[in-house]
Design a protein around this nucleic acid. Structure first.
Lengths: 244, 244
DNA sequence: CCAAAAGTGTTTGAAGTACACCCATGC
DNA sequence: GCATGGGTGTACTTCAAACACTTTTGG
C-alpha cells in the first residue's frame, strides 16, 4: 500500500494475483473415533484428477467470505457451519499456472477453517461422485499445497477445542456427556483427562443444559441429553476458559 | 483453485488483485507504561499525508514474508524481530484505487504482526521524518482499514503474552523480574497478578537464568538480572503454559 | 535512619488427579 | 444376574490469591 497505483517505470514490477479461497472442512465421527476432512476431486487442470480442498477463485465484487460461502452453498450444499479464516499462503511457484506464458500472474490462497455436524456431514458426500470425507490420518496426496493447509487447520482444531466451545458446532444439538468426551478424546488423544473429572468440570461451568431427555443406546444405563446453552456461555467468552 | 486458468466465456469474471503486506510493529516502553505502534506518513496517493502502517505491494517473484522483510530492512531499518502473519483483509472497496477506471483491480492486504525491543525501537524513528511511534491508546485516524488491523494485532499481542514467551522478544537480552512484570502490567493491565506471585511462578518454570549480575537503579535494593533460556524453554513449547 | 525497591515466606481456599464405588438398562 | 455404559463421591495434592515480612541499596 506504499507504492503508487500507476507505477513509475523505475520501480520494480508488481505481481498480479488471482486469489483463491480454500476451506478445510472438518467433521468428527465420534463413533468411529475419526476426524474427517472434506475433499473434492479436481476436474480441471492443473492437477486434474487429484484430490483437493474445496475452493474457488474470487470473483469481481466478491469478498473473501462471500467466495467461501459460495462454494459451500452452491457446490457442496452445506449450510450452518462454523467458519473462520485460517492462513494465507502466497509464495511464488505454489501454483503451476504461474508460468511466464500467463504474464506472471501469481496465485494466492486464503484458507478458511470450517466445522460441520457429523449428521449433516454424512449426506453431503452421499451419492455424489468426486466428493468425499477422508480421515485426517489418511489424507492422500493433494493438489497444490493443500496438504500443508490441512495440517495447519488440524493444529487449529486441536487448539480451539481447548479454549473455545467449538465442540458444540460439531456435535448435534442434543448430545450426551460421553458424546462430548468421545469428541475430545478423538481429537486430542486419550490422556487429556479422566471421564469423571471431565464431567464434573464441564457441568460446573454451567453452560450445559440438561434437557431431561434420556438416550438409550443398547446396553447400559441411559444417558442424560444436554444442550449447549449459548446465553449461559456468553459471560465466559474471552475468558481463559480451559476445557482440558 | 477450482476454475480454469483460461476462463470459459460463460463463467463470471475473476477479480484481479494487487497484494499488499502491512505490518503492525509493536514495542513496549515499560518505563512509561505504554505500548507503541510504528506508523508511517504516506507520501503518495491515496491517503497522501495520512498516517498508515508500514507496508508495500508485493513484487514479482517475491513471497509475502519477503515483502514484509523488504519494508522492515530497507525502509525502516529494523532487524531481528519477531514476525508472524496476522490476518488477511480482502473485501472489495477497501482501497479507493479500486475504481472502474483501474480495470476493476482489487487490493488485498495480508497483515503481519511484529515485535521490536524498545532499545532498538528508539533509534528507528529518531531524526527521520514521516515515521513515528504512537501509543496504541492514541492512534490517529489512519489510511485504509489500518485502524482495524491494529486493533486485531493488539488483541493478538495480549493473547500471546499469556501463553507464549513473546515477552522476551520485546525485553532486552538481560532484564530484571520487575522489568518483566512491568511489561505484563503495561499490556494486560494492573489486575492480573501480584508481583510476588508472578515472580515465584515464573522462576519455578525454570527458563529464566540468573546471570549473577545486578542492576542498580537509583534507590532500593539492586535487582538480579535474568536471561531467557531458550533451551530450557523448548520442552514447554506447545504446552498450555500460562503466565497469567 | 528512612524511604524505596527487591526478594522471601505463610496462610488459606479453590481446583485438578486418581481413583473407588453406586445406578440403570439390555440380554 | 451380569455385563455394559452412565453417574457420584472422596482423599490427596497442587496451585493460585492475598498479604506480611525481611533484605539491600541511596540519600
Amino acid at each position: 500500500m506504499s507504492e503508487r497505483g500507476i507505477k513509475p517505470s523505475n520501480q520494480p514490477a508488481l505481481a498480479d494475483f488471482k486469489v483463491s479461497v480454500d476451506t478445510v472442512i472438518f467433521s468428527v465421527d465420534t463413533q468411529q473415533n475419526r476426524v474427517l476432512v472434506l475433499l473434492i476431486m479436481r476436474r480441471d487442470d492443473p492437477f486434474s484428477g487429484q484430490w483437493s480442498l474445496p475452493g474457488t477463485l474470487v470473483r469481481q465484487g466478491e469478498s473473501l467470505e462471500d467466495a467461501a460461502h459460495r462454494v459451500l452453498v452452491e457446490k457442496i450444499r452445506v449450510n450452518n457451519l462454523y467458519l473462520e479464516q485460517l492462513y494465507t499462503f502466497g509464495g511464488p511457484h505454489r501454483d503451476p499456472r504461474e508460468s511466464p506464458k500467463s504474464f506472471g500472474v501469481r496465485y494466492l490462497s486464503v484458507s478458511y477453517f470450517a466445522l460441520v455436524r457429523f449428521e449433516e456431514a454424512q449426506f453431503i458426500a452421499e451419492g455424489v461422485s468426486g466428493i468425499a470425507w477422508y480421515p485426517v490420518k489418511q489424507i492422500p496426496s493433494l493438489a497444490f499445497d493443500h496438504g500443508k493447509i490441512i495440517e495447519y487447520g488440524y493444529q487449529r482444531l486441536r487448539n480451539k477445542l481447548e479454549y473455545s466451545p467449538v465442540a458444540f458446532d460439531v456435535l448435534p444439538d442434543v448430545f450426551t456427556l460421553s458424546d462430548l468426551y468421545q469428541l475430545y478424546t478423538t481429537v486430542l488423544g486419550e490422556n487429556f483427562s479422566d471421564y469423571s473429572n471431565f464431567r464434573t468440570r464441564l457441568l460446573k461451568l454451567g453452560f450445559l443444559a440438561d434437557t431431561g431427555l434420556k438416550a438409550s443406546r443398547g446396553a447400559g444405563r441411559p444417558a442424560s441429553l444436554y444442550r449447549f446453552d449459548a446465553e449461559a456461555f456468553a459471560p465466559l467468552k474471552d475468558k481463559p476458559l480451559v476445557f482440558l
